[in-house]
Design a protein around this nucleic acid. Sequence first.
RNA 1: GGCGGCGUGGCCGAGUGGUUUAGGCAGGGGCCUGCAAAGCCCCGUACCCGGGUUCGAUUCCCGGCGCCGCCUCCA
Length: 558
Amino acid sequence: MTSATGTEPDGTEPTGTEPTGTEPTGTEPTGTEPTGTEPTGTEPAAAVPACGLRLFDTATGTVHPLVVRDPGRVGMYVCGPTVYDVPHLGHGRFSLVFDVLRRYLQFCGVQVRYVSNITDVDDKILERAEREGRRPTEVAAEFEAVWWDAMDALGVARPDETPHATAWVEQMVAFIGELAGRGLAYETDDGVYLDVERVPGYGLLALQPLDSLRAGARVEASEAKRSPLDFALWKKVGVAGAGPGAAAAAAAGAAALPGTRGTGAGAAGAVGEGAAARTGPGAGELWWPSPWGPGRPGWHTECVVMSLGLLGDGFDLHGGGQDLRFPHHENERAQAVALGRPFARHWAHNGFVEVEGEKMSKSLGNFTSLTDLLARADGRAYRLLVLRSHYRKPIEVNLATVADAEEALARLDGIARRLPDAVAAGAAATTADRALAAGADADAVAAFRAAMDDDLDTGGALAGIFELVRRANAAADAGQQAGAGQAAVTVAALAGALGLELRAAAGEADAETEALVAERDAARAAKDWVRADAVREELTARGWIVEDGPSGTAIRRR
RNA sequence: GGCGGCGUGGCCGAGUGGUUUAGGCAGGGGCCUGCAAAGCCCCGUACCCGGGUUCGAUUCCCGGCGCCGCCUCCA
């Protein structure tokens, strides 16, 4: 059920096509050296832009070409969910934003490797397990399943890799050991911490220097921590409650974790779970052995280890929601930098989802679950809503804006009903070259790429698509099939590049409904308008939209 | 206290130093239709306030007001 490794069948093969659109080289210099901000030395030799895309880079605060490590390829890591509850609207937004980035790169002929993790060991998971008297692995498995259901409903393509934290603990322990070995981390009673003072350039993503961050820290430096900004690489278990002995005593029960998931790339061997029920938080504990005693990894360590492990040093792009910028991404980066390893070449962060003008969040109580939304609205409508605004700006999500998006979506779907063959042909064209080969309008494709290349101006791209919808309908009205077809092919191909599938589906009609349709056709043929209108009202009452066409009464679900 | 963002027509939301100033939804008029629906055509003269720069600012600068976020777990 949680098949984490489903690879998108299309789009990833090397088409060998050279990006056709804007030529990024020569438009520089903007003064910003994309790679110059990484004070990590050792720059990879190859450094060429991926297609014509220019993206805002959080680290530099500028929009510049996406310069990649390996020509024609992009490796991207996007921080995935901690599976302790159903996903919320913000999860939906980041998933959609980076799904669109991925798809667009593929559309341009770039080979993308997309990695997005599942955090399946975390305080919140443990807390929930504790509260519900369940095992943490069970909680994580449940909500991971919910997560993928939501992703499917949104039409988000599965990542190429979905590393699970619990499967990487051994590597994390080794990584922490390296940091500790170099004196960059220190051990306390309750864990191992990174000494951020030792990290050059700390504060890059926070957009402020270390001093400023330190001054603004609202947290009391815990007695043990040297600086309030230092963060846990390893959290020891069993120390909070009855003393350090508890967890160790439970080590006798250590066994292979039954539900260990992930890529299998080196799952930690000995894992303890739930054995130490007699100490404070014991029932929900989940721990691994380490040189510092039993414990679990800190959140910031998981992503740096897994991203470097799967994508390699100096991978191309690291993304996530704005709230991950600091401290999460800052701290991931700090660990890599501390070891002198080149980290992400480019940082992308999407804006928040707001509900009633405020950042939605669980703590504020205006938390709205993605699962709820998807139960009552087409997942494509949420995609459209997200796409309509710029990915870095906040978006307002409420009943009205979702309904608005659904209406707009209906307009798009109308093209699929009216020009199904052209739409099918366009949808099958998953790259710009194939779209053109399928007969898409070259100018429109170029305009689309120009918009997308401009820091993913999905709103502008969408405007172009709606313009094409208008053209397709107008041409079809005028009986110009060729023009209508070309516009429709283009609409479907470009919408597809944004992950939007157009659907003509009318909905299944039962026999009774079919009979009503037949009755209405008969009444209309007999010019019995009173009867025809009565039947239409009946159909409408049953939830159908009734349209009279050349072939008689057509109905579809509303 | 430090840092960052936002304020556009009824709503959502792009964008730009000036002339033809996205797009969607809703609304009005028209065409089409038996009537509708869908579609097409036409319509909105918006840019928080006050200064400044400029021949000219919604767009640049300064100040103000309002709203939001990060600095603590958070996509």
